[in-house]
């Protein structure tokens, strides 16, 4: 008998770091030293703040490189890093470092942005708390999925996997314990970064509905 699924939610308080960059060299220096919560914030902020957009703009780094520095090729390269392939922030950070170092080696001198358009590094402090929702079986799970906030959905799919290092999203892990391996696998195989949060909610519900 699997444990019930306890739905949690999360909120971020955003911190302004004393660090900004005016070109890709300074961006690289920043990416190397900022805390993990900063890399997470800049690669996931769009998902939370602009979840209604499809196609979503890429991560903050890519948006700044493309739209402010107007380095379209590099912006596309940074923007197309497939976050879902990275099990941790450390590995994701290393990939950005690799791409930027390779670009800087081949493209000197680098371009500065106009004054006032610098990239400001931020970080986030994340608060996780339980909601009153508890699912004891698949039927309850599906019903609650329709009601939970976008923050709760975001937490179990994105935050749990890459930030809390749980390897897979919370839903799939619980569904496997419940013996629902097919549904678990199908949710695991989704690329959640290509959906809006509402679209993702509907997709997961539709996967569960196929079971009935």
């Amino acid at each position: 008998m699997a444990e019930p699924f306890y739905f949690h939610t999360q909120f971020n308080l955003v911190e302004i770091l004393n660090k900004k960059s005016k070109n890709v060299i300074e961006l690289l220096e920043g990416i190397k030293v900022v805390p993990d919560s900063s890399i997470f914030y800049h690669t996931h902020k769009f998902l939370e703040q602009h979840h209604y957009l499809l196609p979503e703009p890429a991560n903050d780094f890519a948006y700044w490189i493309s739209d402010v520095l107007e380095e379209k090729t590099l912006g596309e390269e940074i923007g197309s890093v497939d976050i879902v392939d990275f099990p941790s922030i450390r590995e994701l950070r290393n990939r950005f470092i690799e791409i930027l170092e390779e670009h800087i080696d081949k493209n000197r001198p680098v371009r500065n942005c106009t004054e006032g358009s610098e990239f400001h590094f931020m970080a986030c402090k994340t608060f996780i708390l339980p909601t009153p929702y508890i699912a004891h079986n698949l039927k309850e799970f599906k019903e609650i999925l329709r009601k939970i906030s976008k923050s709760s959905l975001y937490f179990h799919i994105f935050e749990a996997r890459i930030r809390l290092g749980k390897v897979d999203n919370d839903f799939s892990r619980w569904l496997r314990d419940l013996g629902k391996d097919r549904i678990a696998a199908e949710i695991s195989h989704l690329d959640p970064y290509t959906y809006t949060l509402e679209g993702l909610r509907e997709k997961i519900i539709s996967i569960i509905c196929k079971e009935n």
Binding site: F11, N12, L13, P35, D36, S37, A123, K125, T126, F127, I128, L129, R163, L164
Partner: peptide, 14 residues
């Protein structure tokens, strides 16, 4: 969250 942050110093707060 700001008020709560004064009492919790860690990056991820349960």
């Amino acid at each position: 969250l700001l008020f709560l942050s004064l009492y919790r110093k860690e990056d991820i707060v349960y």
